[in-house]
């Protein structure tokens, strides 16, 4: 029996997991969402910003990570628009503008005016060098927005010229762009940095959070669901959180059975050898 568990065909695991993830989509479990401290901190920081403050959202994720991070972008966009905070979208990864357009479209009925309430500067190559350059001079770094309009012609950008004019930067990051914002903007200019991450990047960002270099962060789909709960507007992430919970339950069971089988077999082999 133990040997059977140990040598179980991986495809059985995939199948069970598939069922566990799919089931709540048809029959939502309605489990409550508890709010983590890191999400609460990011929400609180944004919530205390005055109308007219400037927040840069750096859309730095690829379609592969969108399932985790895009719901965060939508939730934070809704919060910022509801507070009448000016948003500068940009990206260090090439897909920035398509996610920005989608986030604005899904943000609801705030009817933001382009050029006054938000701008989309689009993707800019150059990685860390771009962050460094824009900290010194945003206008010289970007020159035009994602549609090719000179940013000097966008009324909102008239007073946003350097890192010192930015009240918060949030790195929506599935790679490593948060390191550049912390290193180039937070360390050198004191600009507060928040993070909206896929889960794999959370653990190694915690040292920044503990040291106060990052003011708050969202952890994957769960973080998005927490933010949706905080702004009182449950969306896609909240719906999918049930699937995460049932998936976790199945994985925990597999880990338990796997370990019982492993140690049970090891002990019986030792006994045989003795």
């Amino acid at each position: 029996m133990l040997e059977k568990i140990q040598k179980m065909d991986q495809r059985i695991i995939y199948l069970v997991l598939l069922i566990a993830l799919s089931f709540p989509m048809f029959r939502p479990l309605g489990l409550p969402v508890s709010i983590g401290q890191t999400s609460q901190d990011l929400y609180d920081f944004i919530d205390q910003l005055d109308p007219g403050s400037v927040v840069v959202l750096s859309i730095d994720y690829s379609p592969g990570a969108a399932a985790q991070i895009h719901p965060q972008t939508i939730a934070i966009t809704k919060h910022l628009l509801s507070k009448k905070i000016k948003i500068v979208y940009m990206g260090l990864v090439q897909y920035a503008s398509q996610f920005t357009t989608d986030a604005i479209a899904k943000a609801g009925d705030y009817n933001p005016v382009y050029g006054q309430d938000y701008v989309d500067l689009g993707f800019k190559p150059g990685e860390e060098a771009t962050v460094s350059a824009m900290s010194k001079d945003i206008h010289a770094t970007f020159v035009t927005d994602s549609d090719g309009t000179a940013i000097a012609e966008l009324p909102m950008m008239a007073d946003i010229k350097t890192a010192s004019d930015i009240d918060l930067v949030i790195a929506f990051d599935s790679g490593g762009t948060r390191h550049w914002y912390v290193g180039q903007m937070q360390a050198l200019y004191g600009t507060p940095v928040g993070c909206a991450l896929n889960s794999v990047n959370v653990t190694n960002t915690m040292p920044y959070y503990d040291a106060g270099q990052v003011i708050g962060l969202l952890n994957g789909l769960r973080g998005a669901a927490e933010y949706e709960a905080l702004i009182g507007d449950p969306g896609e992430a909240t719906i999918n959180l049930d699937s995460i919970s049932s998936g976790h339950l199945v994985i925990i069971l597999f880990i338990l059975f796997g370990n019982i089988a492993y140690f049970g077999l090891r002990n019986s082999n030792k006994r045989k050898e003795a």
Partner: peptide, 8 residues
């Protein structure tokens, strides 16, 4: 958790 989110 991240990988499950991708699958979801």
């Amino acid at each position: 958790m991240g990988r499950l989110s991708l699958m979801i």
